[in-house]
């Protein structure tokens, strides 16, 4: 009983004192409940209600109930559909690139040597810089005239590939996705390293005794035991790239002509630029449902695979 849970029920004490103590505990909860309730829980629930109105924001008139017509509007809205498809492209690119590269780096850096720790700290670094600063840095890298990317392509004799990376409607969304990959691969790598280090060493011993080669060891020991870490990585990367906001606002603000608008920036633009709060909230509800489904689905798939 020395390290049991710290519960009131587990203690002996006189009635009145216990009651006074639990009143103290309620006071302890108060600040967190108030701040979290007012500035997160209430607005989150209100978003659902707002999606059923035509409210135009504080400056406009009173909201009136319009049922599901906002959702009908979304289904036929060309810009919303493009936004959705941009979001899919962005997320898929980041998901594939980030998962593959971070796993590879994690396999290379799994041992805690001094050099490896140095590489990890370096690779992790972009994660802690603000996305606005990262976006501005890549505006310079992607600059059509003085950007490093076009200059290096020319020097490598690949001048034909030069383009305006953020201005070209076809490539802009992938240019953005690459920046997201650049910023967060080191962070995901750390999750994989933790997963790899949790695999018992005896299993590798056993595999070696059995005469397994490197690929077999990876396929039959590392990979199955890495599944929990992989599930976290895939779910986290997807959710994080759906939530990307600062980066897109600072790099392109959704342009050129909606080529890089994703769901999170669409909600912001419709609400605060077009003043259509009701319609934006309908988009927000769709966004919330997609994120919820994706999270549930991924955990399911990855667990079945185990």
């Amino acid at each position: 009983m020395s390290t049991g849970r710290l519960t009131l029920s587990g203690r002996t004490g006189k009635g009145p004192r216990r009651r006074r103590q639990s009143r103290t505990l309620l006071l302890f909860l108060l600040p967190a409940v108030v701040i979290y309730g007012v500035f997160l829980a209430v607005p989150a629930v209100a978003a659902l209600a707002m999606s059923l109105t035509d409210w135009e924001g504080v400056a406009g008139g009173d909201p009136s109930f319009v049922g599901l017509s906002n959702f009908g509007g979304l289904a036929t809205d060309g810009i919303f559909r493009q936004t959705f498809s941009n979001n899919v492209k962005f997320t898929l690119f980041v998901l594939v690139a980030q998962t593959v590269v971070s796993l590879l780096l994690a396999l290379l850096l799994v041992k805690n040597t001094r050099v490896n720790v140095f590489y990890r700290v370096l690779y992790f670094f972009p994660t802690i810089i603000s996305s606005v600063s990262v976006a501005l840095a890549w505006i310079l890298m992607y600059d059509p005239n003085i950007g490093a990317l076009n200059i290096l392509l020319e020097r490598a004799g690949l001048g034909g590939l030069q383009r305006s990376w953020l201005g070209d409607r076809g490539t802009a969304i992938f240019s953005l996705a690459f920046v997201q990959f650049w910023q967060h691969t080191g962070q995901v790598m750390i999750i994989f390293i933790a997963g790899l280090q949790a695999i018992p060493k005896e299993l590798y011993e056993a595999a070696r005794v059995e005469g397994a080669n490197r690929w077999q060891t990876f396929r039959y020991v590392t990979w199955p035991l890495l599944a929990p870490a992989a599930a976290i990585v895939v779910a986290y990367t997807t959710i994080q790239s759906f939530r990307a906001f600062d980066l897109v606002i600072a790099l392109t603000d959704g342009g050129p002509s909606y080529a890089t608008e994703i769901l999170s920036t669409w909600i912001y633009h419709v609400a605060f630029r077009d003043n259509n709060f009701g319609y934006a909230s309908a988009g927000a509800v769709v966004f919330m449902v997609i994120l919820g489904l994706l999270t549930a689905l991924q955990f399911r798939v990855l667990r079945v695979d185990r």
Binding site: Y36, V38, F39, L40, A41, V42, P43, A44, A46, A47, M50, G57, V58, I239, F242, R243, F245, L263, S264, I267, Y268, A271, F272, F277, A280, S281, A284, V285, F287, M288, L291, G292, T295
Partner: peptide
Amino acid sequence: GLLIAPQVYMVPLYTI
């Protein structure tokens, strides 16, 4: 609250 992105509730949050 972990499941809710700020973009989802930013509109009602603004009015509050």
